Amino acid sequence: CSVCSEPIMPEPGRDETVRVVALDKNFHMKCYKCEDCGKPLSIEADDNGCFPLDGHVLCRKCHTARA
């Protein structure tokens, strides 16, 4: 995971895991958050999703503030 540096592995008792890929980086679902404010990001293409800027994973509000 690009945030916590832990491997993305299935939880005990499970055969599969879910990971998020954004900007060629891999994330646990729980680690997929705005780099500035820490708001959890949605994997859907909506207002709560990722608004990347200069290689950073940001929420819409933080993207607008940086732009």
Rank of each mutant, 00 (worst) to 15 (best):
H56T: 07
V18A: 15
E11M: 09
C50R: 04
P7V: 15
G13I: 05
S2F: 15
G49D: 06
E11H: 01
I8F: 03
E11T: 15
D47T: 14
G38Y: 13
K39Y: 09
C62V: 01
F51S: 10
S2P: 04
P40C: 08
K25M: 11
Y32N: 00
M29L: 12
T64W: 07
C4P: 01
K30E: 14
A67S: 13
H28K: 01
H63L: 03
A65P: 08
H56G: 04
L58Y: 12
L58P: 02
C59I: 00
M9L: 08
V20M: 10
E35S: 06
L41G: 03
A45V: 11
E35P: 01
M29G: 12
R14S: 10
K61C: 11
M9R: 12
D36I: 14
K25T: 05
D36Q: 09
L58G: 02
D54L: 07
T64V: 15
K33Y: 02
L58S: 04
R19L: 09
L41Y: 03
D47N: 14
G38W: 07
R14N: 13
Y32H: 02
H28Y: 01
D15S: 10
M29E: 12
P52R: 08
P10Y: 12
L58H: 05
L23Y: 11
R60W: 04
G49H: 09
I43Q: 13
V3M: 09
E44H: 15
I8T: 05
T64Q: 12
P52E: 11
E16V: 02
K39P: 00
P52M: 11
D36A: 05
V21P: 13
H28C: 14
M9S: 08
T64C: 14
L23I: 03
A22C: 08
G38M: 13
F27E: 03
P10L: 14
K30L: 06
D24R: 06
L58C: 05
R60T: 05
C59L: 00
T17N: 08
D54C: 05
K39A: 12
I8E: 04
C59F: 00
F27T: 04
C34L: 01
F27N: 00
P12M: 10
A45C: 13
S5P: 00
S5V: 01
S5F: 11
S5Q: 09
C4A: 00
P7E: 14
C62K: 02
G13C: 03
T17G: 15
E44K: 14
H56M: 09
V3T: 02
A22M: 11
D47I: 12
C62N: 00
C31V: 00
L58I: 05
D15W: 04
C34F: 00
V21N: 07
C1K: 04
E35F: 11
R19I: 02
C59G: 01
K61P: 11
K25D: 02
A65V: 14
R14E: 11
L23F: 05
E6S: 11
C1R: 01
D24W: 00
E16C: 04
G38K: 13
F27Y: 10
L41W: 02
R60M: 03
P7W: 03
R19H: 12
F51N: 05
P7A: 13
Y32V: 02
R66C: 10
K25Q: 05
P12S: 15
V3D: 04
H63C: 10
P40L: 11
C62S: 01
G49W: 03
K61G: 09
N26M: 12
R66H: 05
A45W: 04
A22K: 15
V18E: 15
V3P: 01
G55S: 08
K30T: 12
F27H: 01
R14I: 09
S42R: 06
P12T: 13
P7H: 04
F51R: 09
Y32Q: 02
I43A: 13
N48Q: 12
R19G: 09
S2W: 05
L58E: 02
D54H: 07
V21I: 04
T64D: 15
P7N: 12
M9E: 06
V18M: 11
R19Q: 08
D36P: 05
E16G: 09
G13W: 03
V3G: 03
S5E: 06
C4W: 00
L58D: 02
T17D: 09
K61S: 11
K30P: 04
G49E: 08
Y32C: 04
P7K: 14
F51A: 08
I8N: 04
S42E: 11
I43N: 15
N26F: 04
N48P: 08
E35W: 05
L53F: 10
C4S: 01
K61F: 09
C50V: 11
P52C: 08
A65K: 13
T64M: 14
V57C: 05
P40Q: 14
K33W: 01
S42H: 06
M9C: 14
E35Q: 08
M9K: 05
N48I: 07
D54F: 05
D36N: 09
H28L: 00
M9H: 08
G38R: 11
D54K: 08
V57Q: 07
P52L: 13
Y32D: 00
G13D: 09
N48M: 07
C34Y: 01
I43Y: 08
L41M: 12
N26I: 14
K61D: 13
L41S: 01
K33I: 10
V3I: 07
V3H: 03
I8C: 03
D24H: 10
C59M: 00
M29I: 14
K61V: 10
G55R: 07
H63K: 04
L58K: 03
L58A: 03
C31S: 01
K39I: 09
E16D: 06
K33D: 03
N48H: 11
T17P: 10
P52Q: 13
K25F: 01
E35A: 07
C59W: 01
E44Q: 09
V18N: 11
I43T: 13
N48K: 14
D54Q: 08
H56I: 05
Y32A: 02
G13R: 06
A45G: 15
C50P: 11
T64S: 13
S5W: 05
H63F: 12
K39Q: 13
C50A: 13
P40N: 11
F27I: 08
H28W: 00
H56Y: 06
N26P: 06
R19A: 08
G55M: 04
M9D: 03
E35R: 06
F27R: 03
D46E: 03
E16T: 05
E44I: 03
C31Q: 00
D47V: 07
R19V: 03
D46N: 15
K25R: 06
C37N: 02
P7S: 14
F27W: 02
V57W: 05
L23H: 15
K33N: 15
G55D: 15
G55T: 08
E6P: 00
L53V: 14
H28I: 00
F27C: 03
V20P: 07
S2H: 03
M9F: 06
V18I: 09
S5Y: 07
L41Q: 03
G55P: 03
L41P: 11
P12C: 15
R66L: 09
C34P: 04
H63S: 12
G13T: 13
